[in-house]
Write a protein that binds this DNA or RNA. Sequence first.
DNA 1: ACAAAAGTGTTGAGCGTACACCCATGG
DNA 2: CCATGGGTGTACGCTCAACACTTTTGT
Lengths: 233, 233
Amino acid sequence: MVYTSEYPFVYVTVDIVVLTIRDDALQALVVRRAEEPFKNRWALPGGFVGEREDLELAALRELREETDVSPGEVRLEQLKTYGAPDRDPRHRVVSVAFLAVLPAGPTPTAGTDAAEASWVPVDDLLSRGRLAFDHGQILADGVERARAKLEYSNLALAFVGREFTIADLRRVYETVWGRDLDAGNFHRKVTGATGLVRATGRQRAQERGRPAELFTAGSAISVHPPLTREVLR
Amino acid sequence: MVYTSEYPFVYVTVDIVVLTIRDDALQALVVRRAEEPFKNRWALPGGFVGEREDLELAALRELREETDVSPGEVRLEQLKTYGAPDRDPRHRVVSVAFLAVLPAGPTPTAGTDAAEASWVPVDDLLSRGRLAFDHGQILADGVERARAKLEYSNLALAFVGREFTIADLRRVYETVWGRDLDAGNFHRKVTGATGLVRATGRQRAQERGRPAELFTAGSAISVHPPLTREVLR
DNA sequence: ACAAAAGTGTTGAGCGTACACCCATGG
DNA sequence: CCATGGGTGTACGCTCAACACTTTTGT
């Protein structure tokens, strides 16, 4: 099939920054490129937008081609659009980037696709700067967005499963921000924010120490007052 | 010229939410559509992205075709990308929306283009919902972004000229947020935020009352601590 | 009994809001 | 001298960070 147009056009793709926490580290999903350009380099998962496909659905479809995540347990939001004329050496490609966050548990590295896919700590990906195209910048923007949204939104809940303890949630903040938080103050703040989490009444035994109460997500989307990641000393 | 492709493609445009303050109201720039669809309806300024043109430059070019604003006095940032398959009844069009903020003074309604362009209060545009395509949603998203960014960024400075008084700045907040602020506390907070504004030492006579000191923009991009638009009573 | 983790109490410092008050100008 | 808007002082209440302390489990 050959498509024709009287106006200049560009290819539109979606690229997805998929974040999760594995092994106490913030990790991103990357796929090994099988072809030039950037052959054998890591790239963000993504692909072309279908002819009559909504952008968000395209991102969700690409995500499901790389992971076995179900739509219900992934948080997906639009990040930014990247359209520098030379960002792809072959064609003019405008890419709408998305940020996806999912819980670590139920999603193995997987990949029904033939391409090799892997979870890699974002610190490694960012410091060594080996991603294809401008995906290093996209990843950096996605990570920064996630860090910022922990402050005032319930994004942290997307990193944990349906049931979680307050300490689970605190470890999300500590991992994403790279900073230890006071356990007591964190507990008070999170349980005190109206509607953020809801107690189940049940408990979960820890490896060591007192069992922790289990919570589920509440109805609140934003956190008031916000948590702060700045060190104020 | 006819362009061909082996993959499905979409048209890519930019649309711009241009905000300023005129007559003590937050106003947006809109253009009257001369053709179907949505003939004679207001639309946001915008147009096709050039073949080898960066997205931001395309937005800047379109902006200059509708106003006589110079690049130095406009604040332009990417807002969001809109790509629902049926948002334009003719073709598949993905639009990268931008938010532009400019000072009221030096920019008359103008328009070198033949199309009729006009400043209209955003309250009118949003409440009567007569904008073409999904531009009502884009405008709403842009206004919300501006309202949010006043809290923690120096975006308010883009609404005033190079030299301004603290009261000028306060009126920006009051107009955009639709809420009166305490003049004394606002003064302290803005002048106390490190690097946000810089005193010139000169003054400007008011119509009535004590003359106000003139300030220019400082080097800080973000405001710490943030101002708050919530009413806490 | 001890270690470890969950969760609660307490306290002092800092900040924001409200509002009183002073300052500088035009009429 | 009065009205008006710019700008400062002050006091009360609230929140946060720090950290002591209690609770509840496994070993």
